[in-house]
Structure formats: structure tokens, C-alpha cells
Amino acid sequence: MAEIITRQAVVEESTTPMPGPGPDREFTVEARSQWKTIVRRFVHHRLAMISLFLFVLLVIASIIGPPLWKYKFDQTLRKPAGSGPNWLSPTWEHPFGISRTGYDQLALVMRGLQYSIRIALVVVVVSTVLGVVIGAISGYFGKWIDTISMRFVDLMLIIPFQVAVACLQRNVKGSNWLWLALFLAGFSWMGLARIIRGEFLSLREKEFVEAARAVGAKPMRIIFRQILPNALGPIIVSATLAVGGAVLAEAALSFIGLGVKQPDTSLGFLIERGKGEAATKPYLFWWPVVILCIISLTVNFVGDGLRDAFDPRQNRVRA
């Protein structure tokens, strides 16, 4: 309590040279309540909240599941004496069945999920940083910097990005999930860069930017401290949706055999492994597929909820 009072006192003290503290205090209250309303709007979006809950559940399962589950992903199971040819089918002991090579499928799926999420997080962090920095610099400075970077974006979009990533990661020997994630990020920042550039083009004309410039702030400070916080909405929404996109892109690549390789794994890798027996041993194929669908659906719902929360006027449609 005391802290709040002192902070308020500091605010009042620092604003005394301004023409009256009244409007200024009103401004700080409003800034706080803007975030509060966004959070409230999001919390009231029921589907988005359920999706968030499910997604978090999956993430937790992928982290604490493997050490807790009684079978390990690399623990070969022997065929019990006297069992029929169906010993691989799901039982209470092995809810997802046993893989062709004798591993517990649930342990494999949890490990695959963990790698998928790990890859997605790396992709999202790297591609968001790339997209924001390039978009921001392009939109703020304009002129030739803008022209060059936007032509570069056009160029990057000419080659289907999955194909480019597949080509590049062919060279990587051994454990390749991190490289795969970095390549994916390197080819998926363009959309965000375009959005951020658009935001910056309009925001840089606002009065507060002019004020910051008049005070003598350097361009980098204006970009990252003044303008960027105002463009946070689209960044958060796009980063959320990118989680789904990255999981799907990785799964697609691994599914055609050009993504992650042994000793790594992922949901797409498991789907590819189960593909041959989708008709005869459906449990090996469908569990990773179902989890992939759940991730994609929940992430899209959360993204939609966030979009509505940030900008309720916008239509609930994604291009």
C-alpha cells in the first residue's frame, strides 16, 4: 500500500511542471484499464478460454508426462508369453498401443508432442523478432529502406517455404530439430513484417511520435519504446496463430520425410511412421493426428479470442 502511495506521489511530483496533474492522472488510469478490458474481453470468450485450458494441458502433459509415465520412449517391450498376434493393440497398460518396433506408443506420442511444441516455440520467438524488427525499421524509416526490405519480402514469398526449408535441412546431419526450427523461422516472418510495417506507417504520423522526436529521442528509442507498445495487439495475435502454423508446418515436412530425423521425433514424424499401418493398426496413426488437430484448433480459437479482445470492431476473419 505504502509503495503505491509513494509511486503516486512520484507521479504527481514529476507532473507538476505540466499544466495541471488532473488530465495526466486520468491518462495513467485509462492506460491500465485498457489492458484490463482486453483481459476481461478475452476471459469472457468462452471457446478461447476452453481452448487455452486444453492447450496448456497438452503443454504440461508434454513436459511432465514422459518422466511420470511408467514406460520410457526407448524402452523395448517384449511380447508376453502366450499372447496372441494382437498384443500390440491398446490395453489399460498401454492406452495408445505398442508401436511396431515394440515401444509404448503413449510415451512416443508425449515425446513427439514435446518436440513439436519445442520447435514451434523456437519458430515463433525467432520469426516474431525478425518480423517485428524488419517490419518496424521498414515502416518507420520508409524510403529506400522500405523499398528494399519489402522487395526482399516479395522475393522470399516466391519459393514455397516448406520446400526451401526441406532443401536446406537436407544438409544437417544428426539431431536437426533446432536447425529445422531456425530454417522454418527464417522463412515465416514475412507476413508479420508486412503487418508491422503497415502499423508503423500509420503510427509514425501520430502526435506522440512527433513529440518524442521533438524531445530528441533517437529513432531506435522511438521505434521500440514509443511506437512498438502501440502495435502490441497484432504482434500478440500473430505470434499466437504462428504457434499453430509452426506445428503444422513442421508436421507437414516430417510427414513427407523431409523434416525431423532420428534421434529426434515429432508428431509429424510419428504420423509418417504410422502411415503404412493406418488401415491395419489405426491407433498408431490416429493418436498423433488427433493431437495435431487439437493443437491447431485450440491455437486458432485462442488467436481468434485475442483478436476480438484487442480489437472488437474487427471482423472475426483471418485472411
Binding site: 503444422l248 507437414a252 510427414f255 488427433v290 495435431l292 491447431s296
Partner: peptide, 8 residues
Amino acid sequence: LFSMPIVA
């Protein structure tokens, strides 16, 4: 359908 992976 929009959220479904094409594999599925």
C-alpha cells in the same frame, strides 16, 4: 476445416 491439418 480451416484449422484442420491437411494430413488429417
